[in-house]
């Protein structure tokens, strides 16, 4: 499922039957036909084309905001787990504070002050999501820190940074990857929500959330305007959730004994419900 969306996003210019912003005021809100397979919107633009191009924005925001959140959260989580004491306390209190804000609310507030560009949406979502990674990485890192190979690495004189990146990080990468995969789906929904509210990607750039908002505005004239972008979001998010859950099962030794490293346990491997609930 994810593969199809990625291919569509990469090859959108070649797969799209029309340019994404090509308007035709004589053919507004047209029903699906052989010329426009999913019909046209209120400006006469081809909906299929805009769904293809919208996938680019969704995936760009999804991957980039998860990268921002993952890098910040993993770095701080590792620092907290490795150094402990005051460093751990300070980082975890900041994490508690960020986790007190529902992500969509924090993203809304940040987008309101920074502005509704793709870059600022990525930053806002990244700043909203990093705390979950920090908490996850700290938990996993605390277990790894007392392992013999980390002690050995310290004994032979490796520096702090090298121990964290070379010896601790590779051993806690599994749960991070699972959370990142599931997080992409959440970030895609968050971006679409912001665009739905008019605070996300600005027109004329195609965005699935904004297309659904148009569907609600023009429901009486064209009943299925919001159906196809809605299905596109659901397909993509479902794909990432299934991929994340599959990855979680694969990495979980309680399900797949002996197939992979034995560091992850059920508490450390988040699933789709966990990520959505945070």
């Amino acid at each position: 499922m994810v593969g199809i969306v990625v291919v569509v996003a990469i090859f959108a210019p070649y797969l799209s039957p029309y340019p994404p912003d090509q308007m035709n005021i004589l053919n507004q809100l047209a029903a699906p036909s052989h010329r426009h397979l999913l019909g046209t919107d209120n400006f006469g633009r081809d909906i299929l084309t805009r769904i293809f191009w919208g996938s680019r924005v969704s995936l760009l925001v999804g991957f980039s905001s998860v990268a921002v959140a993952g890098v910040i959260g993993t770095s701080l989580g590792l620092l907290a787990a490795y150094f402990g004491g005051a460093v751990d306390n300070v980082i975890m209190r900041i994490t508690d504070i960020v986790l007190s804000f529902p992500v969509i609310l924090l993203a809304l507030a940040l987008v309101a002050v920074l502005g509704p560009s793709v870059r600022d949406i990525i930053i806002s979502l990244g700043l909203g999501y990093w705390a979950s990674y920090a908490r996850l990485v700290r938990g996993a890192g605390l277990e790894v820190r007392s392992e013999q190979y980390v002690e050995a690495a310290r004994a032979v004189g490796n520096g702090h940074l090298r121990i964290m990146l070379r010896y601790m990080l590779p051993n806690i990468l599994g749960p991070i990857l699972v959370m990142a995969t599931l997080g992409i789906g959440s970030a895609i929904v968050a971006e679409a929500s912001l665009s739905f509210l008019g605070l996300g990607v600005q027109p004329p750039t195609a965005s699935w959330g904004a297309m659904i908002a148009d569907g609600l505005r023009f429901f009486l004239q064209a009943q299925d305007l919001s159906t196809f972008p809605g299905l596109a979001i659901m397909w993509t998010v479902l794909g990432f959730n299934l991929l994340g859950d599959g990855l979680s099962d694969y990495l979980n030794p309680k399900i797949n004994r002996g197939r992979h490293g034995a560091l992850q346990d059920e508490e450390e491997s988040p699933d789709a419900s966990y990520v959505q609930a945070h």
Partner: peptide
């Protein structure tokens, strides 16, 4: 879980 809440509301 995969269905955006605003789409469900719209429907």
């Amino acid at each position: 879980i995969s269905m955006p809440v605003f789409w469900l509301g719209t429907l």
